[in-house]
Design a protein around this nucleic acid. Structure first.
Lengths: 213, 213, 213, 213
DNA sequence: GATGAATGAGGATTCATTCAT
DNA sequence: AATGAATGAATCCTCATTCAT
């Protein structure tokens, strides 16, 4: 009879995992609309179609929900970033992959990005007690970019710059891009902003021709 | 005796104005440390050395304090930006002035920038009902940059790019710079990050020599 | 085949009875440590090694568990009291048996006594709706003492006092003794407190020699 | 103008003190009826005729209210005990004063005694983290009794017993008396129980005539 | 104007109890 | 019979705001 219990346990575990995911998605939705402080747990529960108490079967606190919602998505984005960048060869293509993935993600995971762009950074600025897991998730793709730049420099494909600072610049510019899109501030003929960023970076990183000043 | 009343009225008004400023400074301080939601009005009052009720003589609500604190400083920064950029001639110097002013401001008005970087943007992302005054304050310097780029393009000093997108890029990169400094993530040999940003922008905007890709 | 069912039924009933007992013992343990209000049913279940829901197969509510835990032990103590007091002849020995049994019980059933001393009395004081079963359990041994005193008076072995009041005094003094032992407030040379109580009672109940005031 | 402020401050402070007292009395009332766990702060507030939040202007937590209510009354009782016992000479009178005061207090401060008898002891039994202030208040009168007995022994007025154990016995017997009265279990012809306790103690402490066993 | 006591709505969290499996 | 996920009522406490002094 052991196998029956095992199967039922599995069913249960799967069900629990689904519940958890549903809760996280509901949470993302509400957090994205109202921010952490303005969101109340009851709304998350309602959105997920469960009772308030149920939420606490899956998460220890409102804050845990928040961080879990972020972490899950951040890891997925990091994984996708790695895959996409690995899938192409030249640094230019890798760079484009990094940026374009984010533009796609923006469409499919708007809630996550609203949270990420809006509050995670604020938390860091206030010196929140984020666990290292967290900081890592926030920086992993930045490291990927830095490695890419270092390699390109080594091959002489781009001029000698600090690879980390270059990565940081990409991150900042892309963040700006995402924000503006979320705010609906970008031009109607979408894509020109991405193209501009790429253009800016290609120009500025190209091996020197003559000094520009 | 009318003049006496007038003088006393003036005195009163000046006193009131000072109170208001003191309150705003206290508010900035507390908001910067704890963020909007975690800050309570009593702490602001205490920091300003007045009673809780007094705060409500000068501001209608906690939110009004927050926004007023932001607005006052944002306007000052915008004014200073205009002055510094007007004081020099070349687009390169203007650009450097824009960035360096912010680095200075970072030292002297850390609280404001923590607020600005951390929460005002989040509010916007959440589609807060900020009055146009705000959006304007938040974007004024960006427009200044755009105008500067437009002029430089007209004079052929930089290659033909969208001046607004260029301005936006500057804003984004500088924001990243400020954030990293606030987080204490910048290198010990300060200034290399500013230099990098300038270098990046000079390169990418220089009139074309040969296309880099 | 009826006998098989009967046996199985018996087995079942025995098993159930054991479960019930195990639950009660677990409950006593937790209630004694944390008190009624601070104890939660889950902890009792965990301590008994069953699931939370199972507890409700054996008891209707948390309060029922509490009272059942008390009642079972109270009845055992009453039974033991009767046996021990019956086993000896003189009122002095009976009195000593009453007290010493409680000191033993204190060691072996600390949990029960913590509950009894701490909360059952409080419940009564608050005028709780305890059924008469309870009041009876709480008072049975007191009645035994009263009967004993009445008999001793009849035989002229002790002076003429109200037997019920004397019983009450014994109960109160013994309760104090137990409390102090549970609190660890008794002297290191254990037993002097018991001896003192006995001594006090012997003196005060001795047939009059000359009046002491 | 300073004096005006001073007076107003005094008024305010007096008012505050009265409010505090009213809250404590309301709290005593509710706690006595329902016990600590079953009492909710809102009911205390309602009974005192203030809003829920107001309670927290005077006390940090529900527990603080509870302890404050106990402490205030315990101290008063201790003070009265000292006064009454000082007012008479013989140990017999002092003993009677101790007991009779408690019987009076029972009438006028029933709530306090319900709390004291019911829950403070339970808290101690559960090893609560009561501050020493607390333990002291609970034991002060016991010490008074012990001193009294020690003095009487020194003067040869009572036989040689351990004064602390004698004090403890008095405390225990008196507690029993109070409890029974609160429970309404005492005889209609009130006072016989007090008399019995006194009688018991007088007999048992009288200088030896001949050994009673 | 200034104060700070009073208010009471609001929210996170707990936990006894139920019930589908 | 046993389980444990789900429920949702209940409660402590906070804090923005008001208002009598």
């Amino acid at each position: 009879m052991g196998w029956l219990l095992l199967i039922m346990n599995n069913r249960r575990k799967e069900g629990a995992e689904m519940r958890r995911s549903a809760l996280l998605q509901a949470a993302r939705c509400v957090f994205a609309q109202r921010g952490f402080a303005e969101t109340n747990v009851e709304d998350i529960a309602a959105k997920a179609g469960v009772a308030k108490g149920t939420v606490y079967l899956y998460f220890n606190s409102k804050e845990h929900i928040y961080l879990a919602a972020f972490l899950e998505d951040a890891r997925r984005l990091n994984r996708l970033t790695r895959e996409r960048m690995d899938a192409v060869q030249s640094w230019q293509d890798k760079l484009r992959a990094y940026i374009e993935l984010r533009m796609e993600y923006l469409e499919s995971h708007q809630e996550f990005l609203r949270i990420y762009l809006a509050e995670i950074r604020s938390m860091m600025l206030r010196g929140a007690r984020l666990c290292s897991e967290f900081v890592h998730a926030a920086c992993e793709s930045e490291m990927l970019l830095a490695q890419m730049f270092a390699a390109a420099i080594a091959k002489g494909e781009i001029r000698k710059v600090d690879p980390e600072l270059a990565a940081v610049a990409v991150v900042d510019l892309t963040r700006g891009l995402m924000e503006r899109r979320l705010l609906g501030w970008c031009r109607p003929e979408g894509g020109c902003d991405v193209q501009f960023e790429l253009d800016l970076l290609y120009h500025s990183l190209a091996p020197a021709c003559k000094e520009p000043r």
